[in-house]
Simulated scan of single mutants.
Amino acid sequence: MSAGFRGIAEQLRTQIERGFYAPGTRIPTEFDLAEQFGVSRETVRRALALLKTEGLLGTARSKGTYVQHPPVRLVIARYGAVANASRERADLGPWETACAEQGIEGRAVVTAVERESAFPAVAARLELEEGTEVVRRSREMWAGDRIAQLQDAWMPAALVEGTPLAGTTKVVGGVYAAMAAHGFAPGHVSEEIAARISMGTERERLSLAPGAWVLELWRITRDQNGRAVEVLRTVANASMSAFVYDDLPIGSAGRRDQVIDQR
């Protein structure tokens, strides 16, 4: 059969969605696909490039072109469970736990831990004076052989002094478990998410094509006394991360602390 590259991409997309090619499996070579569809290898190459841009396919030296796993689903309710140090697999943080439950090899890699002065966006969210000393922890969240998220977390230096949160190594079991262990257990969180075009080095680190979209999430964590103890900024590959907010109250029960941002 003969088809343009968009038609070929559509047929492969349908096969992936219907499970003909399972996540993690290798798809046929460009040569085999060219023979199957009766087109040139260049046409096949353009179809595969489109599916890679959409996040459906990936490429690795060890397995050629393969079907990407679905986005890692991060359920907001998970964070309360992860703060419990006695839970099963307590050595894993939220990202690693979510990946493990979905059969994906996930890991969190600390790339920097530094002290700095709180700039306006961070100071406002932490309810601190601008310039107050904070500890910034930067991490890469990996899913398989790709970085799915870039994270920067800021905490008041005076609060985390002398705890693993101010150290330069990975916090085993996750930040929330460490907070709970040192007397400022998380009480509740607020999050805001927006989609935007990827920029500069983040696009390179996330292996995104020019013009690809990311999800930018800002999360404020407060302890059980209402004090802001952490602000987190996550820049996520939009095809590899899904943020799930389930069982939320609506109606009069949901209007408490409601804020409408009309900026």
Rank of each mutant, 00 (worst) to 15 (best):
E54V: 00
R115P: 00
F184M: 15
V175K: 11
V134G: 01
R6V: 14
E127M: 10
S198W: 04
A108I: 14
N237P: 00
E35L: 13
A157V: 06
G55N: 02
I16W: 09
K170C: 11
E88M: 12
L74F: 07
G226D: 06
R45E: 06
T97P: 09
G38P: 05
L126M: 01
A77D: 13
Q151N: 07
K63I: 14
H182G: 12
I197N: 07
I260V: 14
R196C: 10
A81S: 11
S117C: 06
F119S: 10
P23G: 14
A77F: 04
A212V: 02
G162K: 13
E10R: 07
T14N: 01
A178H: 01
V122H: 02
A108S: 14
A158Q: 11
R45V: 04
A49P: 07
R196F: 01
L56Y: 02
R46Y: 11
A253F: 09
C99D: 02
E230M: 14
E42G: 10
Q224C: 08
Q151G: 07
A108L: 09
I27G: 15
A81F: 13
E216D: 11
A157C: 06
F20K: 13
N237S: 08
G80H: 13
A181Q: 11
A100D: 15
A153Q: 05
A242N: 06
H188T: 11
E130N: 07
H182F: 10
V72I: 11
A47Q: 05
A100Y: 14
V82K: 10
L217I: 15
S241P: 01
R41D: 02
G167D: 09
L217E: 15
E133S: 09
Q151T: 12
